[in-house]
Simulated assay, not measured.
Amino acid sequence: MNRRSIAFGLFCLAILPAVGCDKATPVAPSGTTLTLSANPSQIGLTGRSTITIVGRKPDGNPLNPGTEVRLTTDRGTIDPVVEIGDGGVATAVLRADGRPGTATVSAATADASVDTTVQIGQSDDTRPNLIISATPNNIPVGGTAQVTVIARNADNTPVSAGQEVILTTSLGTITPNRPRTRSDGTATATLNAGDQAGTATITAILGTSEAETTDVTIRDAATDISVQANPRTIPRAGGEVTLTAFVTNSQGLPIQGAPVTFAA
């Protein structure tokens, strides 16, 4: 082996460490600061939230691209490691796994760590409030009433459009029984009384809201009427006759409070 070959070999060995250093993963210096945010900060039970991490060196400059940041969450799932990109920014996605509650997401690198929270599903402070009404609230057998649900967030703003309201009734039927909210937070349906008299208690639920109810009286419908006169005859000179109307339903039972109009 000549001297030129030996010198070339030593030169290659000398530059290898330098090449290796260029490819090494950047390390966050001591004193690094991190900021963490989630958008949106509230998601559904199977929803997603974008987690944004911003890393700064002690001098205020962005962390070097490629710097690794470790991520954890106590609810749902998230990528365990992300790399800082341009401008010192990195993003990850928190995926809800069906468990409701508050997810605490943590980010850490070097001696810096930071937390943020994402609400999965509804909490006591964010659950919607409902107002339910029926018009009219007194209908005959076979009649109908319009059911209106007004849904509001905890801050009294309308809930978003397209949310499903679950409606049930103790008497008759409701169509549709799972209406969706409009942009103003309202949802409507129709109560069909059917052929049974009584009180229909209508219940509405949206997500984790409290159940709200309203009542509709379903009264018997008049299907037959008969009239009796007393006396049955009067003299030519004239006199008074008392007319009594008997109103019954389809089962032949008397109906109370049915309006009756007499005409000569």
Rank of each mutant, 00 (worst) to 15 (best):
R3A: 13
S5C: 01
G9N: 08
C12F: 13
G20E: 13
K23Y: 14
P29Q: 03
S41A: 12
I43C: 04
G47F: 07
R48N: 15
G55H: 01
D59E: 13
N61M: 13
G66V: 13
D74P: 10
T77V: 06
T77G: 01
I84S: 03
I84A: 02
G87R: 10
V89I: 15
G101L: 11
A103D: 09
V105R: 00
A107I: 08
T109A: 05
A110L: 00
A110T: 00
A110R: 01
S113R: 05
I120Y: 10
R127P: 05
I131W: 11
I131G: 13
I132M: 11
N137D: 15
I139L: 11
P140S: 12
P140I: 11
T148V: 11
I150T: 14
S160L: 12
G162Y: 12
E164I: 15
E164K: 13
E164W: 04
T173A: 00
I174K: 01
A189L: 00
A193R: 04
Q196H: 10
G198C: 09
T201Q: 11
E210S: 14
T213W: 06
T213F: 06
T213L: 08
T214A: 06
V216K: 04
A221V: 12
A237K: 10
G238A: 12
G239I: 02
L243E: 02
N249Y: 03
L253N: 11
P254Q: 01
G257N: 12
A258I: 06
V260R: 04
